[in-house]
Nucleic acid binder design. Structure first.
Lengths: 213, 213
DNA sequence: ATTACTAGTAGTCGAGTAT
DNA sequence: TATACTCGACTACTAGTAA
């Protein structure tokens, strides 16, 4: 009803008719998905003001992209654009772990520079990133080092700024923020591509490389 | 799991794990959606052969296109291609009814030629047609003439072969077949565009015309 | 008008098991 | 191994109604 773009007013009774259930059930559903953090809800005198949250929107996008690949077929290339930023430098810590390094060498045929390039994404590119994440990936298994647990990682070979071959990497533990992306490469990307914070970067992933046709 | 393109073998137990339910529930669900005509199912010694039916695929497309317009926003133009064919000529019967004619004149600002051009669609263009049908339309109300009931119709102003202005029309009663589309225009399209059965036709609908932005 | 609680019931699920 | 039936347990629904 447009609650994706703007706040929408609807009574639980009207909603009930639309989704073919009782007023009580419609009311309960709204309450429940609010508790799940998927919508915002304000009760007024003549109905309920409803709008979607970022979490809710992302859930919709997930379902949408899933259907998209099954119906339209997987895209042949995914292009993600974003701007360079400095993270907490935890990427460097992770990439210097031997447990990851050796597996990356084997799967991606390059020895990763000990650090990651952090890319900040806008809404459109978050969607593109999620589309990428949905595709079958090269799995880097997690491992234990003492008490510390290092989670699984997913890799997608990619070309950065149409120049350097590297990979997009989603590390389980650090991948809490959907608006950021991490890129690894055999060399130090910031010097190779002369990148400073805020610079635009284009990441190109050819999906045909790892999708069976 | 690929059951959209090909037949897929999966055991109800494996399926259960994937969708987080018991083997019994997975089995029951498969049975039920088969009974709804959404999938085909053959039980073998080591699992179940599953493939989607056209009806099932169309249901997926419906959900997909709904999500698409809410997430990507409505498309600015929809292009549908198909080939001319001869129907049962019931379009002529419908379009000659005064109850429709007068409303069309008012809403579309032209007096419809008493007949419709039938367009046969392939899978890809069926999807485009459904995408069109999902958008807000110009409503032509149904009416009663004696005992006969004439259903509602939905219109979308369109350009045919980049030449003639007309409209795509979905008449409630006759619109049982998703692979066909009916076009109306102020003139006899077959002679104006020199069309014979089997000829290709391009229908262009500018959605911005009737979507509030 | 609304939303939403309580209570009773209809519907769904899964363990056990037959095939 | 499979699929799928029966039946008790549980979940989710709606009617009535309060706020």
């Amino acid at each position: 009803l447009g609650a994706v773009q703007k706040t929408v007013n609807i009574s639980t009774g009207k909603l009930a008719t639309r989704i073919c259930c009782s007023q009580q059930t419609a009311s309960r559903h709204l309450k429940e998905i609010e508790e799940l953090g998927l919508i915002r809800r304000t009760i007024t005198l003549d109905g309920t003001e409803v709008s979607i949250t970022d979490r809710g929107f992302e859930e919709l996008v997930k379902i949408y992209l899933n259907l998209k690949t099954t119906i339209e077929g997987p895209p042949s290339e995914i292009v993600i654009e974003g701007s360079v930023f400095s993270g907490f430098n935890d990427g460097a810590y992770y990439m210097s772990r031997n447990g990851y390094q050796s597996q990356i060498e084997e799967s991606l045929s390059f020895s990763p520079y000990p650090g990651t390039l952090n890319i900040k994404l806008n809404r459109k590119n978050i969607k593109a990133a999620k589309e990428l994440e949905m595709l079958p990936s090269i799995l880097i298994k997690g491992f234990k080092k003492g008490k510390r647990h290092f989670g699984d990682a997913k890799c997608y070979p990619a070309t950065i700024n149409d120049d350097t071959e590297g990979a997009v990497i989603f590390i389980e533990r650090t991948h809490y923020d959907d608006s950021a992306l991490q890129v690894i490469a055999p060399i130090y990307l910031r010097s190779r591509l002369d990148l400073r914070d805020g610079d635009k970067v284009t990441i190109r992933v050819s999906t045909s490389r790892f999708i069976p046709t």
